Amino acid sequence: MGKGMSIITDLDEQRFEQEVADRHEPALVVLKADWCRPCRTLMPTLEAVAQHYADRVKVYRVDINASPALAGRLGARGVPTLCLFIDGALETTRVGALSRAQLHQLIDEHL
């Protein structure tokens, strides 16, 4: 997949309400930073997981430097932080670069 072809949608404060908070579709929001090495490690794995769940879960990424207020609102203590939303409400949060198996487990537990 080329760089422009990512299945993961970039998210900022403005789009958060309409994309995540007001939606019934499950959403996985990943808070990341360009300087964060575990974030870079996580991205290809996340891309594959987003592909796998494409019809059931929408995956977003938030750059904490570009959207600090949203990162604060989502309670990011470190990066990467993964926030799973069900029916627009924050269901669970995990910090760290999860493996593909851990990501599947995180999503499957709540779907």
Rank of each mutant, 00 (worst) to 15 (best):
D10M: 13
G4E: 08
L31A: 13
A71I: 05
E17P: 05
I64D: 02
E91R: 15
K32D: 03
A33C: 05
E91H: 15
L84P: 07
V59T: 14
H104W: 03
K32C: 10
R23K: 15
Y60G: 02
C36V: 12
Q102N: 03
A33S: 14
Y53N: 09
L111W: 07
N65D: 15
Q51P: 05
A21C: 03
V57N: 04
E25H: 03
E19D: 11
R23Y: 02
V95Y: 06
A76Y: 11
R94P: 03
A101H: 01
A97F: 01
F16S: 07
G88K: 13
K3Y: 07
A33V: 06
E91K: 15
P68A: 06
T93L: 04
G78N: 14
P38G: 12
L106S: 06
L90N: 12
Q102E: 13
T41E: 05
G4F: 01
C39E: 04
E47H: 12
V29I: 08
Y60N: 11
R23S: 14
D108S: 09
E91C: 15
E19N: 09
A66Y: 06
V29S: 11
G4P: 00
R61G: 14
R40L: 11
L11I: 13
L82Y: 08
T41F: 07
D12Q: 05
A48N: 05
V49F: 01
T45C: 08
T93Q: 15
L74S: 10
R15I: 01
L31M: 14
Q18S: 04
K32V: 04
P68Y: 11
V62D: 02
E91D: 15
L28V: 10
P26M: 10
T41M: 12
G4T: 04
A54N: 00
H110Q: 15
